[in-house]
């Protein structure tokens, strides 16, 4: 029963690529202040300068360094992704396990709320809410998490329902354990991998949605974001600059989302024993 998830992810080709990409992005984002040659908002050169040794990716319409903007944009994307993923994942676990364990009316109520939230197109609503609030980083995370948790809650509930039937849980009940104890000691530890998968999924969607919202200009305009960069670049597609202004944030966004998708794929393969069996080195 003991599966070393890291080991498994590293052995999976897609998983390995995803993992290394994410690590690379995280490293770049973390070291942005050291790696970026200029502060992202400073006007450091002539407008629309092409890539050169001073400005690797040139400058934009007001003379800001695009490479620096790209690095700082990675920070936003990752913070929003991790934050919203973590928050949404946690809400999913709390709602999913509690409704699985408590059952009855509470369970029905939770699941109906989840259904109701799932039918709302999140991007549309996010645009509406965003347009009103012009959300800053923290509020953006909260907003995204609020839209993301219902999907995860269903998955977690289904998993918790099957975990709850384990004999070890029944045994704990016969020691007099309450639902809180069982949740903390027996259900949540076994949910770990599923939780991780849900969180990665949520993070991927959060990053995508954040970029989308920024692209549409409904976010706090001071946020350094790939989406915002693309929005601004889009106005100047008749010039040559789109090659180094529009493409790099688009590629970076695609890479990030792809890396997270790869990780999800790998995790799903590991968690689903039927898919596991297809691996060449099955039996390990």
């Amino acid at each position: 029963m003991h599966v070393d998830y890291w080991q498994e992810i590293r052995e999976d080709r897609l998983g390995r690529i995803g993992l290394y990409l994410i690590l690379l992005l995280a490293l770049l984002a973390a070291l942005a202040p050291f790696l970026a040659p200029y502060p992202p908002e400073a006007r450091v050169g002539a407008a629309f300068s092409p890539p050169s040794s001073r400005h690797w990716l040139g400058t934009n319409d007001v003379g800001q360094d695009i490479w620096s903007g790209l690095l700082y944009g990675a920070r936003t994307s990752l913070v929003v992704g991790c934050g919203a993923g973590l928050l949404a994942g946690t809400i999913s676990v709390l709602v999913g396990t509690s409704s699985a364990l408590v059952g009855g009316f509470y369970d029905s109520l939770c699941m109906r709320v989840v259904d109701a939230l799932l039918v709302i197109p999140p991007v549309l609503l996010a645009i509406l809410v965003g347009a009103y609030f012009k959300p800053h980083l923290l509020t953006l995370i909260l907003l995204l998490a609020a839209f993301l948790w219902p999907g995860g809650a269903r998955i977690i509930r289904a998993e918790a329902l099957s975990l709850k039937e384990k004999k070890s849980v029944a045994a704990a009940r016969t020691f007099g354990a309450g639902s809180l104890y069982i949740m903390a000691r027996h259900i949540v530890p076994d949910l770990g991998p599923v939780w991780l998968a849900v969180m990665i999924q949520d993070a991927r969607r959060a990053i995508f949605m954040e970029a989308g919202l920024s692209f549409l200009g409904v976010c706090d305009p001071t946020l350094h974001s790939w989406g915002k960069m693309m929005q601004q670049a889009l106005e100047f597609t008749y010039l040559e600059v789109w090659k180094w202004w529009l493409l790099p944030p688009g590629l970076a966004l695609s890479l990030t989302v792809a890396a997270l998708s790869f990780l999800s794929f790998a995790l799903e393969r590991i968690l689903n024993p039927r898919l596991r069996g297809e691996r060449e080195d099955a039996g390990h």
């Binding site: 029963m1 003991h2 384990k166 004999k167 070890s168 029944a170 045994a171 076994d190």
Partner: peptide, 8 residues
């Protein structure tokens, strides 16, 4: 009884 023992 083995299944009543949590593997963790």
């Amino acid at each position: 009884p083995k299944s009543s023992l949590s593997h963790r």
